[in-house]
């Protein structure tokens, strides 16, 4: 994956800032919805071998609740919001004022509410990114899955498959020590989107 390994240190920093602004906005949206503060860790930007991607959320077999959206527009990519299944239940309990039991059974209604929450968070992530870059970016209809982390995340790596054995992840953790509503955002820009992002941000000549 020649183009990925050629990314310079400052370019990775630029992508980190992209993650920071996007997820900062999403954290604000979540905090408004919850009416309580949501903390966010400093985003990590790294080129991760396929093998290790699922390790970022606890291993290939770890059960996760995932909301997936395809980023469409001028700099396409994949966006995941990944939660621990119990954290997802707590989020529903708090946000949608649903009576929830902390087990692994999800009703259609609960899944639909989760995908709407994912939609709101992803929408605020992307709209801040679009404002920053001046690029047209919009989220697809969200899809949810409660399944093994490896099976879910590998779906977002296919665009990289034909270029190498690693993908670039922009990763942000939401933290909420009190009630453990923690979640993780993964933005995985398509390999061809970097040049477009860098150009839009004025850090690379066209």
């Amino acid at each position: 994956m020649s183009s990925l390994h050629r990314l310079e240190e400052f370019e990775l920093d630029v992508l980190k800032e992209v993650g920071n602004i996007g997820s900062g906005n999403a954290a604000t949206a979540l905090s408004t919805l919850l009416d309580k503060p949501v903390d966010m860790a400093v985003p990590k930007v790294s080129v991760v071998p396929f093998e290790e991607v699922a390790e970022r959320v606890g291993g290939a077999e770890e059960l996760v609740m995932a909301v997936f959206l395809r980023v469409e527009g001028e700099a396409p990519g994949n966006l995941f919001y990944i939660m621990h299944p119990v954290a997802a239940k707590r989020l529903l309990g708090r946000l949608a004022a649903m009576e929830v039991e902390e087990d692994l059974e999800y009703s259609e209604m609960e899944l639909s509410a989760l995908s709407e929450i994912g939609n709101i968070l992803a929408g605020s992530y992307l709209s801040s990114l679009a404002d920053l870059t001046g690029l047209g970016l919009s989220p697809s209809v969200p899809a949810v899955a409660l399944d093994m982390a490896g099976a879910v995340l590998s779906y977002g790596l296919m665009q990289y498959g034909e270029m190498g054995d690693a993908a670039l992840l922009i990763e942000t953790k939401f933290l909420d020590a009190g009630e453990q509503l923690d979640g993780q955002f993964f933005l995985i820009p398509d390999p061809d989107s970097f040049a477009i992002l860098f150009q839009a941000l004025g850090v690379r000549e066209s």
Partner: peptide, 19 residues
């Protein structure tokens, strides 16, 4: 992922999280 291997002598061979 995107890997292959061989097992012999009663070993098991395993891959996780196929989507």
């Amino acid at each position: 992922m995107a890997d292959l291997n061989v097992a012999t002598r009663g070993e098991c061979i395993r891959t996780s999280g196929l989507g």
